[in-house]
């Protein structure tokens, strides 16, 4: 079956320190990503700041044009931005990001904001009011809240508004970029459950970008771990968290503070993620890796199958060869 969405060798680079005379630096924020998202699945993308996960999310939606590589929607290349075909496709894919207050217009009632995509994409215009009521009900907002303004709602309610608005155009695919990171723990769970319902009840496909591994583990079927613009490990959610193989994933998973467990047994990585502008040679993770061998500084590991997962690590490949 063709995946709903697929990327091939996706690369994005940015020019920094651009100037009239000096040589410009280029940063490869995303550096060769091959992913596929099946219909009805939730794919998690985890990584730290600078790993390129948000850039990847924007490219999946066609909001950014990749420098190299391509995004395939149902096996066909994504149309170029701002064409009629692209706009039609955009109705089927929506973005939800971290700060709901920034995503909403302070001067419009939330009812009007939820109705907006209906006008833009020219759907259900005749019974827009019914459709708004239905959407609000679906995300757990009270009908009377349609007349409220964003500042009158709590953070969790605002995120529900953003989700309702994203659902208005009946999308098949959502990219959620840190959708619950700004919310308090008790509210976070409400929104996570809502997203889960959307997948289970309506068969929505999602890419869920987050640095919160516990939430990712809970909601995602499959997870890709990114480090400095590349996927270093990809596997089913249960597998990657119970048995991480890439040394970076291992450190990431062990760094999650667990209730009732002290600081023992955690892998503390030395140093910080390097600046993408000066990417280490070979495996980009080798300067911080406790398993690194000499070869890691020279050879770039490929993303290969290891024991029911994809991982990019020379040591894993060698161990299997031995």
């Amino acid at each position: 079956m063709t995946p709903l969405l697929q990327t091939r060798g996706l690369v994005q680079r940015y020019v920094t320190g651009k100037s009239l005379f000096g040589e410009a630096d280029t940063v490869r924020a995303v550096d060769g990503i091959d992913l596929s998202v099946r219909e009805g699945e939730i794919l998690g993308i985890v990584g730290e700041s600078g790993s390129g996960k948000s850039t990847l999310g924007r490219m999946l939606l066609g909001l950014e044009v990749p420098h190299q590589g391509e995004v395939l929607w149902q096996g066909r290349p994504m149309p170029s931005p701002r064409t009629a075909a692209w706009r039609e496709l955009r109705a089927q894919m929506q973005l939800i990001f971290q700060d709901p207050l920034a995503a909403l217009d302070r001067r419009m009632t939330i009812g009007a904001q939820i109705a907006e995509p209906l006008e833009i994409h020219d759907i259900d215009r005749a019974n827009a009011a019914d459709r708004v009521a239905e959407l609000m009900d679906r995300v757990g907002l009270r009908p009377d809240q349609a007349r409220s303004y964003p500042h009158e709602l709590s953070g969790g309610q605002r995120q529900r508004v953003v989700i309702a608005r994203a659902l208005a155009s009946r999308p098949r695919f959502l990219v959620c970029d840190e959708p619950v990171s700004a919310l308090d723990v008790s509210i976070q769970a409400q929104v996570v459950n809502l997203l889960r319902d959307l997948q289970e009840r309506d068969g929505l496909t999602m890419v869920f970008i987050s640095h919160d591994l516990k939430v990712v583990r809970n909601i995602c079927d499959r997870v890709a771990v990114m480090y400095l613009g590349r996927v270093v490990e990809e596997a089913l959610s249960d597998r990657i968290f119970s048995d991480p193989r890439h040394p970076y994933t291992q450190a990431l998973v062990s760094s999650i503070p667990k209730v009732g467990q002290g600081l023992e047994g955690r892998i503390i990585l030395p140093g910080e993620p390097p600046n993408p502008a000066c990417r280490p040679s070979g495996c980009a993770f080798h300067p911080r890796c406790r398993a690194a061998v000499t070869a890691c500084a020279a050879t770039e590991p490929a993303l290969e199958h290891h024991d029911g997962r994809l991982a990019a690590c020379l040591c894993l490949s060698e161990r299997e060869a031995a």
Partner: peptide, 15 residues
């Protein structure tokens, strides 16, 4: 409300 890393991937129990 906090998802558990080891348990089933069940629905969360929000407040």
């Amino acid at each position: 409300a906090i998802p558990d890393l080891d348990a089933e991937r069940a629905r969360l129990a929000p407040i």
